[in-house]
């Protein structure tokens, strides 16, 4: 199980003395074999979160545990060993594939670095990995530029799987792909999850794809989780006005539905170096009340249970501060 506890990440502002609050205290868990979808727009902190989870960067505070091991404390060989268990897949693996290495060499290199197989065995393993992602063995001889976008993404997945990870962090894995190729990759991810018992963190701005693959969904805004819970509960019955706006912003491919064109949310995401007072969403929120301008709401469970949590004074029908202290409304 992967657990993030109160992760905070601040970056200094270039040429100034302020800080950017990229992550303002994020806690979440991903169970074995579970897929956590993370939805959010630019500046919400989803990519920073991914970097902290794979330890590409260190958090300012907070910790990340994998199966009881605190990853933030690890250094050197112990860190390398643990890193194997969480692999990351990017939107365009082209940028992370060496253009001068054939696919087979690239996969073989990963196996060599991690001392997972040599000689004949390595060759066989490369063939197995390609087969796992639906590519013929002949692809081992191809260069990255000879591959289509979908094939490159398959190679990216094969490379991530080469070290036999427990968790795959998928950062916008299908956003650059055409509709028909996207379908192939989504289906492949679902199959691999089942066959290999993998856990996924599926990061995307595409609500439809998150709905297709997730067991649970977290919605992020300005460095916070503002809503989290079971996929159907969060996406089909959203309680946070931001989640509702995200849903409404994506038109369904059905001309029989009446889908108003009016924008549901005005304005843009605020500057994370100068976040607004109170709830970070209040300047854009159609439901904002006085308390929302003053107090940053805690992420709290909805009264009816089911693990659905929301950080909104209005949806929770109670006014809290960030720590969850109840505050009498109107004071």
């Amino acid at each position: 199980m992967l657990t993030a506890t109160d992760l905070v990440k601040q970056y200094p502002v270039r040429g100034g003395d302020g800080v950017v609050h990229a992550l303002a205290g994020v806690s979440l868990t991903v169970g074995d074999g579970e897929t956590l979808g993370i939805v959010g727009e630019s500046g919400c902190g989803k990519s920073t979160l991914a970097k902290l989870l794979v330890r590409l960067e260190d958090p300012t505070s907070g910790r990340v545990d994998l199966d009881g091991v605190d990853l933030t404390e690890l250094r050197g060989p112990a860190l390398r060993q643990q890193r194997r268990h969480i692999q990351m897949l990017f939107q365009d693996p082209y940028s992370s594939l060496n253009p001068r290495l054939r696919v087979g060499q690239a996969l073989g290199e990963v196996l060599a670095v991690h001392r997972l197989a040599d000689g004949r065995q390595r060759e066989r393993r490369v063939g197995d990995l390609l087969e796992m992602v639906g590519l013929a063995p002949a692809f081992a001889d191809r260069f990255p530029h000879e591959l289509s976008g979908g094939q490159r993404q398959r190679v990216g997945i094969a490379r991530a799987l080469a070290v036999e990870p427990k968790v795959l962090l998928l950062d916008e894995p299908v956003s650059a792909l055409d509709v028909s190729v996207r379908a192939e990759i989504m289906n492949l991810l679902v199959t691999l999850r089942r066959e290999l018992g993998l856990s996924y963190v599926f990061i995307s701005h595409d609500v439809a794809m998150v709905r297709q693959i997730s067991d649970r969904v977290a919605v992020m805004y300005l460095g916070r989780v503002v809503e989290i819970g079971d996929w159907k509960s969060v996406l089909d019955n959203p309680r946070h006005p931001y989640t509702a706006a995200l849903r409404a912003a994506v038109p369904a491919p059905n001309p029989e539905l009446s889908q108003p064109i009016e924008a549901t949310v005005s304005g843009e995401v605020p500057n994370p170096a100068a976040p607004p007072s109170g709830c970070p969403f209040h300047p854009r929120c159609p439901l904002a009340q006085d308390a929302c301008r003053r107090l940053d709401p805690a992420l709290l469970p909805l009264p009816l249970g089911s693990g659905h949590q929301v950080a909104c004074h209005v949806a929770a029908e109670r006014v809290t501060d960030r720590s969850g202290q109840l505050t009498p409304s109107g004071s």
């Binding site: 289509s148 509709v179 028909s180 996207r182 379908a183 192939e184 989504m186 289906n187 679902v190 439809a208 794809m209 709905r211 297709q212 693959i213 159907k232 369904a252 491919p253």
Partner: peptide, 24 residues
Amino acid sequence: KALLAALPDPSDDDRPPLAQIPGR
């Protein structure tokens, strides 16, 4: 028809695999 079938149906709670178009 194939292009439309490759889209997820936002009202389907069973979330079946998306229809693929063979080849390129």
